[in-house]
Amino acid sequence: MSCPLCKHDSVYFGTYQGRIYNRCTFCASVFLDPNDLPSAKAEKKRYDKHENSLDNKGYLQFLEPLRNVIIKNESATQTGLDYGCGPNPVLSKLLKKEGFTVKQYDIYYHNEVSVLQETYDYIVCCEVIEHFHNPYEAFSQLKSLLKPKNSKLYCKTALLQPEQDFESWAYKNDFTHSFFYSEKALQFLKEEFQFSELVMQPDYFILET
């Protein structure tokens, strides 16, 4: 079986909670076996239960590092895209409070095709990329939505560490999390999609054109 990100071979990694996981022999990412990927109906049912809001202080603290770096790096004259924003796009609302222009796209909640026909100064994927069933195709689309020069893709996800105890890792327990990225996978993304820079921080990473 080939890795859905870098297309190299993968090997059986383990079975956890009745789901089979494979590991890429090249980029070291771990991903759900295709037979165990959740259906669109099951995914949406799970997302419908999210209780993210401006009143959720814990969630606001969770978003704060990403919010702060966007406010630092970007400007109100630019246009951003909150990709995979969910039913309540809290990050977009926080940025709009600062005078930023941010559009939303979500396959289930904000499926506006016109939004995908524009290009953006920056795109934010907050807890989104681990849900990609076909990450290569998804990142190809994201790159096409960025302006060719001086644009940024901000991604927040939990990275798979080299010595990760996968069995006890709570992040895998959400059945909608289907792909777990290693640092080598991020280097692949930088090189394959011809980003000029990869900036890694504890809470997020940035790919720059």
Rank of each mutant, 00 (worst) to 15 (best):
Y83L: 09
D48P: 00
P38Y: 06
N111I: 02
E64I: 00
E118I: 04
T79I: 12
S114E: 15
L146M: 13
K143E: 07
Y47W: 09
P89R: 06
L160H: 03
H131P: 11
A42L: 04
L37W: 09
E163M: 11
E137H: 14
L37Y: 05
D33W: 08
N68Y: 07
S39H: 12
A40Q: 14
K156N: 09
E112I: 07
Y120M: 05
Y109T: 09
E64R: 11
P87Y: 02
L37R: 12
F100V: 03
H133D: 05
N35W: 02
C125K: 02
L60D: 03
P34Q: 12
G86H: 07
S29M: 09
E163D: 15
Y109F: 15
S75Y: 01
S140I: 00
C155T: 09
D55F: 05
E43V: 07
E130N: 05
C126N: 14
D55G: 05
N88C: 00
L81T: 01
S29V: 08
I107Y: 12
L54C: 02
K49L: 12
V128G: 06
H131G: 10
F31G: 04
V30T: 13
F100M: 11
T79E: 08
F31H: 12
Y154E: 02
F139T: 07
D33Q: 10
G99C: 10
V115L: 08
C85E: 03
S29G: 15
E130M: 07
E74S: 14
H110F: 15
L94A: 10
P148T: 15
E112A: 05
K44F: 04
G86V: 07
D48N: 11
L63S: 08
A76P: 02
Q78K: 14
N134S: 13
R46L: 10
C125S: 10
V90M: 07
V113L: 12
E98M: 08
N111D: 14
L81Y: 01
D106M: 11
G99S: 10
Y105W: 11
N56C: 05
H110Q: 14
A42S: 10
S140G: 11
P87A: 12
L54M: 11
